[in-house]
Amino acid sequence: MSHDIHKYAFFLGCIAPNRYPGIEAAAIRTGKKLDIELVPLKGASCCPAPGAFGSIDLNVWYAMAARNLILAEQMNMDIALICNGCYKSIWEVNHKLKHNDELRDSVNEVLKEVDMEYKGTSNVYHLAELYYNDEVCGLNKLRDSVTTPLSGVKVACHYGCHLLKPAKDREFAGGAIGDSEHPMWFEELVDALGAEAVEYRNKMQCCGAGGGVRGYDIAHSLDITNEKLTNMTAAGADAIADTCPFCQLQFDRGQFEIGQKFGVEWHVPVLHYCEMLGLAQGMSPVELGLDLHQTSCKPFLDKLKGGQ
């Protein structure tokens, strides 16, 4: 196990810092116990949103993502991030620009007007993959950092889409993370915190929010969310764990919206993995901003207390 400090430029995205700041706070604080140091990426913007923004013009999506990548290149650092949507934009554009000279040239031509040049010198990682990676952190180190195990609760893992798919365009080290049909690494990460990850039907299904559909047709989008909630609760889940603040927003606010639109009542707490890790390392629900969640986290927290 390595004790070197791993430093990354911390790409925040939008929804974590501006709607669920507890995820940001937890990522920074829990990293200290794992020798992962997250350095501010000053002046970063929206990744920009791959569905809502990329649908309008992929070329401007490439250029806007490249601007964020250049900020990290100027710091000589790799990027770590906490959102699947950001992963698609930042990782995938980095990958495309590194391997497609024509595309890189066309992006750089526009970026020249703002005195920037994409060079392709940084790599991009999701924090979840770094937690799983033995060379950076690994399950043992994660387990050792736990002071208050999340025992007695069942957790449904929501992988989301854009971290893993399209799999043929992704390049994860080793085979464990890259599988998009039935991966188990997120369950292992959750189990490492002392909780019990449960299997549920159609677990790789989308949350329903992506591609601009949440804004375009909210009922359609929520109907997908409702199906996932049905499958998760059928497996006895006390909470949902996610690695994507946008999925989190869809499940968290979506439960309220589903109640309003469909008259179906759900009360399933939704937590980002960083928030769960924070709890397991002894951070309080208030320090994690769990009171900001629209769907109350209380049933989950009560069950944790009862189990300890």
Binding site: N18, P21, A25, L41, A44, S45
Partner: peptide, 24 residues
């Protein structure tokens, strides 16, 4: 930002020990 900051969130951020505006 596609999802911008707002006053309620600024207050919440400060309570968490973060600055009111993220480093963006």
């Amino acid at each position: 930002h596609g999802v911008p900051n707002n006053d309620a969130n600024r207050v919440a951020r400060v309570k968490l020990g973060l600055e009111p505006e993220p480093e963006t």
